Simulated assay, not measured.
Amino acid sequence: MSAIPFYKYQAAGNDFVIFDNRNGQFSFSAQEIARICHRQFGIGADGIMLLETDASTDFKMVYFNADGAPSSMCGNGGRALVAFAHHLGLFENSCSFMAVDGLHQAKVLGPNYIALEMQDYKDLLLADTHCFLDTGSPHHIEFVAQSEAVDVVQEGRKIRYAAPYGEKGANVNFVEVLGPKQLQIATYERGVENETLACGTGVTAAAIAHFLQHGPKAKGHHRIEVRAKGGELAVEFDYQEEIKNIWLLGPAQAVFQGQYFGLQK
Results as ranks from 00 to 15, higher is better:
K181W: 09
T201R: 02
R223T: 15
A11V: 06
L116D: 06
L81M: 13
W247K: 09
T53R: 12
Q154C: 15
D123H: 14
A11N: 00
E148T: 15
A66V: 10
W247V: 10
F174M: 07
P216T: 07
K60G: 09
A207Y: 04
G47F: 01
A205T: 12
Q240R: 10
V62R: 08
L233V: 12
S96M: 11
M61R: 03
G230D: 01
A85Y: 01
F211S: 04
L133W: 02
G262W: 05
F174K: 08
E117P: 09
E167Q: 14
L124T: 10
I246P: 03
I208T: 05
N93E: 10
G47N: 02
V203C: 10
A170G: 07
L88H: 10
L51W: 09
S71C: 06
Q253S: 13
C37N: 05
L178P: 07
E225D: 13
L197Q: 12
K107A: 11
D134Y: 12
Q257V: 05
R160L: 08
Y121V: 10
Y113M: 11
G136F: 00
A209C: 10
K60C: 14
E117F: 04
E142A: 14
E148S: 15
G75L: 03
A106N: 02
E225W: 08
V150C: 01
Q240V: 12
P138A: 06
V82C: 09
K168I: 13
N65Q: 05
P70N: 02
C131R: 01
D120A: 15
F91T: 07
I185S: 03
A234Y: 00
T187I: 15
K122E: 11
A186G: 11
I243N: 07
G166Q: 03
S94A: 15
D67I: 13
P70V: 12
Q240G: 13
Y121Q: 02
V203E: 03
Q264M: 12
N21M: 02
G262T: 12
H87Q: 15
D101S: 12
A205K: 08
Q146M: 14
N245V: 06
N23M: 13
S27P: 02
P251W: 00
L50G: 02
A11Y: 02
H139R: 07
D123L: 14
A234N: 00
G77Q: 01
S27G: 11
V203A: 13
R223E: 11
G110Q: 12
T57C: 10
V226D: 00
T201E: 03
L88F: 07
H87L: 13
D20F: 06
A12Y: 06
K217Y: 06
H130E: 07
A106E: 00
I159K: 05
H139T: 11
T57K: 01
A163I: 13
I4N: 02
F16S: 06
K219I: 13
Q257H: 13
